[in-house]
Design a protein around this nucleic acid. Sequence first.
DNA 1: CGCGACTTTGACAGATGTCAAGGCTTGTGG
DNA 2: CCACAAGCCTTGACATCTGTCAAAGTCGCG
Lengths: 255, 255
Amino acid sequence: MSLSDPSAFRLFLHRLTAHSRLSGEEQQVILDLPGTAFQVATNRDFVRLGERVDHACLVVEGLIGRFGQNREGSRQITALHIPGDMADLHSVVFPSAGSALQALSVSTIIRVPHDALRQAASRHPAVAEAFWRDGVADAAILAEWVVNVGRRNARARAAHLFCELATRYRQTGAGGRDGFALRATQTHLADALGLTPVHVNRTLMGLRAEKLIAFAGRMLRILDWERLVDAGEFDSDYLKMDRATPLRGRALLGA
Amino acid sequence: MSLSDPSAFRLFLHRLTAHSRLSGEEQQVILDLPGTAFQVATNRDFVRLGERVDHACLVVEGLIGRFGQNREGSRQITALHIPGDMADLHSVVFPSAGSALQALSVSTIIRVPHDALRQAASRHPAVAEAFWRDGVADAAILAEWVVNVGRRNARARAAHLFCELATRYRQTGAGGRDGFALRATQTHLADALGLTPVHVNRTLMGLRAEKLIAFAGRMLRILDWERLVDAGEFDSDYLKMDRATPLRGRALLGA
DNA sequence: CGCGACTTTGACAGATGTCAAGGCTTGTGG
DNA sequence: CCACAAGCCTTGACATCTGTCAAAGTCGCG
């Protein structure tokens, strides 16, 4: 598929077709989804914990974090969403938000009504399947985050996160192995990595001293992809970005 | 539903209906799923990383861990599955295993062919929806683990895990707020909590000294539920064990 | 030009990891 | 029923990583 018109819905479709096979008609259903766009300011929650929603949020621009938190109020980011991600597609089946969504930088998102998503899914089993599979792919990323936070030291955690983001951005055409726009502060990174802002700073300075990465404004430049992958023990398999080998027949859920 | 016959499929159905509404016929489809049972020895992987599977694993007895690992080989458990859980329902849409499954104690599982699960899903949209929702519920647990490992100290992590397990076991009728059979070693707990076995030991001794828990053979006894919940900052909401408030109409995916 | 947010530093504290050894259970075979 | 082995739990001394606190430096935006 061409990304010459990287509209948000096209990016979302691109994400879906990265691991699901959709017919022309089914693709059109995705592209024709309704929704209303709006802007979110930096550090502003636009979905609050426990809130009941009737729409899902498609990221158009910016960077979105999904937050959990412990009692003392220190926050933990459980997922980062970039343009083309439907940040809470799962809300279609669980309308009350299990975690908050916050914009880490000025962002624009499109609210897509659950009704429309449900209709698309119920009329097109292959679309329903693609939604399910999309959720599974997100869960795989989540599992890798557990490993990252639970079993790697600060340097490896940071390197791993950067590799993941670079790979995901590359998939959307917005960056690649030489770098990408990192729209997060070191405090945000700390929340994602399970570290303190101070220690993130020390860690990043270390990676810079090693000449693995560099910063230029908001741009994170990756100076040595191979060594960064090594430092982060990164193996992109878990991102499941190759289309799953075709199932016999085509639409799993279509009778 | 009665749990007087807590067969594995009945437990699985019970799990599904905890958050999805299924008609009598749809329930029967679940109960009629085929599968062949077999035993797994302690510490034995029965699904290996990257392996391609054509069946999902329903836990009948014992305790199953899903493992990720870093390069040095230290392992991290990303999910624990108890009887009634379909440990890798997601493999229906992603047949190549993204993480290994290992029995933490002698366990028996039932292999349910993907074909049968696909058929059930494609013929009964409400079943497909229940499967999707089940995966979302698992992902919510995963997100909470990220918070646990990333933002809580050893004492709170352990307390939180015990609260989660107690709550999940209670749901299946195999234990409750006064305790449950913990079929894991301290080394397993370390892998689940992102800690060292030695430190898990110190932490558990601390919890025992505080009279929050006690051990009697394989039984973990919870001596003070309230204080344990407090220590673990546990809030069961994320387990989504209340049936989602009914959606308008009933079957979301059924046209 | 000045404010506010973000980054960078340093000194120190505390939690958790590491290593190594000994003691306890439990299951097995004689 | 006893003895043994294997795995598991427990402990202690010490190392290291990461957190805490506080302040100064830098950058971008109005």
